[in-house]
Amino acid sequence: MRALIQRVTEARVTVDGEIIGQTGPGLLVLVCAMLGDDPAKADLLAAKIAKLRIFQDPVGKMNLSLRDTGGSALVVSQFTLAADTRSGNRPGFSSAASPDEGRSLYEHFTGALRHQGVACETGLFGASMQVSLVNDGPVTIWLDV
């Protein structure tokens, strides 16, 4: 699985003008299921994100995890993270999981993140969404498992 995480002071996702998910201080997690991914990879990614030490401790060093800070996550599915841009000008997405498999792994990932003790809200799988955020730092990290 692949994720782009951003440390945020706030983030929200809207569909048709209605806020369907939001978070205060914590993470915006854009996540993509890739061909060959399975629930074990979703579990591994969730554990990595929950434990990743990218929040500042009292002396200003990035030394705390999302669990340590009690922050929350907004998890948004984004198959475009699978974009292959090596040739031509139009990205290909053939390395993304099928929509049914992607939805299942997205839901499994979100459940695994909650199981790690992280409160999280979500976007709407497959919908056209508008995502807004205030990146904190900025801290943006790409993860592949």
Rank of each mutant, 00 (worst) to 15 (best):
R2K: 15
R2L: 15
A3V: 15
A3K: 11
I5V: 15
I5P: 01
E10V: 05
A11R: 05
R12L: 14
V13P: 02
T14I: 05
T14Q: 12
V15Y: 07
D16P: 01
G17D: 14
G17A: 10
G17C: 08
Q22G: 11
G24K: 13
P25W: 02
G26F: 03
G26K: 02
L27K: 04
L28V: 11
L28S: 10
V29C: 10
V29H: 05
L30W: 01
L30T: 00
L30I: 01
C32M: 04
A33G: 04
M34F: 06
M34L: 15
G36C: 06
G36D: 13
D38H: 12
P39Y: 09
P39A: 08
K41G: 12
A42R: 12
A42V: 09
L44R: 07
L44V: 03
A47N: 09
K48Q: 10
K48G: 05
K51S: 15
K51G: 13
K51H: 13
R53H: 11
I54Q: 02
I54A: 01
I54P: 00
I54H: 01
F55Y: 14
Q56Y: 05
Q56T: 12
D57W: 06
P58D: 15
P58W: 06
P58S: 12
L64W: 14
L66I: 12
L66F: 12
L66V: 07
L66Q: 06
R67K: 10
R67V: 13
T69D: 12
T69S: 12
T69N: 08
T69E: 06
G71V: 10
G71R: 09
S72R: 06
S72V: 02
S72F: 07
A73V: 07
V75I: 10
S77I: 07
F79T: 11
L81N: 11
L81Y: 13
A83W: 00
A83E: 04
A83G: 00
D84S: 08
D84R: 00
D84F: 01
T85C: 15
T85E: 08
S87W: 13
N89P: 02
G92W: 06
F93P: 01
F93G: 03
S94T: 14
A97W: 09
A97M: 05
P99L: 10
P99V: 07
D100Q: 11
D100I: 00
G102M: 06
R103K: 15
R103M: 15
Y106V: 00
E107H: 10
H108Q: 14
H108P: 00
H108F: 11
H108W: 08
T110V: 15
T110H: 09
L113V: 05
L113A: 11
H115N: 12
H115C: 01
Q116M: 04
V118G: 01
V118D: 04
C120I: 05
E121H: 06
E121I: 00
E121K: 03
T122C: 08
T122Q: 09
G123V: 02
G123F: 02
L124Q: 09
L124A: 11
F125H: 02
G126M: 12
A127R: 02
A127C: 00
S128I: 11
S128W: 02
S128P: 00
M129Q: 03
L133V: 05
D136F: 03
D136I: 03
G137P: 01
G137K: 07
W142C: 03
W142L: 04
L143H: 04
L143P: 02
D144M: 02
D144L: 02
